[in-house]
Design a protein around this nucleic acid. Structure first.
Length: 353
DNA sequence: AGAATTTGACCCAG
DNA sequence: CTGGGTCAAATTCT
């Protein structure tokens, strides 16, 4: 029974990974001057990554990522574009997620390198009780375009070959055509990177390569309905994303009909109980993805993240019967966009899986 | 010379 | 008070 589920998940995962790689390929073929097209592809890629994440909760090492070691984002600094008044106002924490990237002697020079963005290192700290220092990067366009994206890179405590890369905030910068064409263009990218004099040095230090793990971290949201206050915790989810290249874009998003990854909400003290719901399908090779980002609130409904613009209406409901199909990339993108809120309020406790 | 990195000091949430 | 995050001057690199 468990084997059956694992097989199905494996197939779904392979299909989505295939989709991801082909989307990246497609992205490189889009006219770089067409920002909307590129943005669309980026959104789809994000959605695919998210789906992969939901499919692989148990594949990630159960390494503890203590809240303290992940630190926090202070409003004043992260949102430094604010004037001194608005610095004091509450701002939602920026979206934050962690990728774990494995580096090995054998595969160190293969696979996707970096994330295609230009980063500038602005700090390095030794972290208490951590063997390895943490490096701090911000987007190179932070000054010129006010992009607030940051990332932190730290070698894993448990596995020397794994780097924890924590991304904080969305890129708001407009990339140059050169960057756009470089992004997701594996061959060119790898060539450029390897030929860059800094490449070996950077790779040795903080530019992990190869297998990637992504942890979307848990959050707690206090919602108000009338006079009732309710604290809801949204469990984290994680995924190991391998980088296999497959030749066929075919139906990448035809994932598992009747497969649903969901998690339950909790109130106050109860632990969240991540649930993988699966029912048999007629054909294991023909899958369709359901909304995988959401929270089971009972009666067949899923609840997703808060609408940040309205604190009193902290969530929206998505029916699990809505499904994404591969018939239209655009509709898929819209759907995925609807289920993933980049302004998701997040806290930084360790993954549950 | 300009860009990028390093590193000690500072800030401030917890 | 502690320690993670950031700043910015000094240093190194291209």
């Amino acid at each position: 029974m468990d084997d059956n589920i694992d097989k199905k998940r494996l197939i779904i995962k392979e299909q989505i990974e295939e989709a991801r790689e082909l989307l990246k390929e497609l992205q490189t073929k889009i006219n770089p001057s067409s920002l909307s097209g590129h943005d669309l592809m980026t959104n789809i890629l994000c959605s695919v990554e998210t789906s992969l994440t939901m499919l692989n909760p148990v594949n990630v090492e159960t390494k503890s990522i203590p809240q303290s070691s992940l630190g926090h984002v202070r409003n004043g600094h992260l949102f430094s574009e604010c004037n001194s008044d608005s610095r004091k106002r509450y701002r939602k924490p920026a979206v934050r997620w962690t990728e774990q990237v494995r580096v090995s002697a054998q595969t160190g020079l293969q696979g996707p390198i970096d994330d295609g963005y230009a980063w500038r290192k602005y700090g390095q700290k030794n972290i208490l009780e951590a063997k390895h220092h943490r490096s701090y990067y911000k987007c190179s366009y932070g000054k010129t375009q006010g992009c607030l994206a940051r990332k932190q890179v730290q070698r894993s405590e448990l596995d020397w070959s794994i780097f924890d890369v924590t991304y904080i905030g969305k890129h708001s910068c407009i990339e140059t055509p050169e960057l756009l064409s470089m992004r997701y263009s594996h061959n060119k990218h790898q060539h450029d990177q390897r030929c860059h004099p800094n490449y070996l040095k950077e790779r040795k230090e903080d530019k992990p390569l190869g297998e990637t793990y992504i942890n979307f971290q848990a959050s707690s949201v206090q919602s108000e309905k009338g006079n009732d206050k309710q604290l809801k915790s949204y469990p984290s989810f994680s995924i190991c994303s391998t980088t296999s290249l497959q030749p066929n874009i075919g139906n990448c998003l035809e994932a598992s009909k009747n497969h649903l990854v969901s998690t339950s909400t909790k109130t106050e003290s109860r632990s969240p109980s991540p649930t993988f719901i699966s029912t048999p399908t007629a054909s294991e090779s023909n899958y369709k993805i359901h909304n995988v980002v959401g929270y089971n609130i009972g009666e067949g409904s899923l609840q997703t993240t808060a609408d940040s613009r309205d604190a009193k209406d902290h969530h929206m409901i998505i029916s699990p019967t809505v499904s994404a199909t591969s018939s239209s990339m655009h509709s898929c993108s819209n759907l995925m966009d609807s289920i993933w809120d980049w302004d998701f309020p997040i806290d930084y406790s360790r993954p549950h899986f």
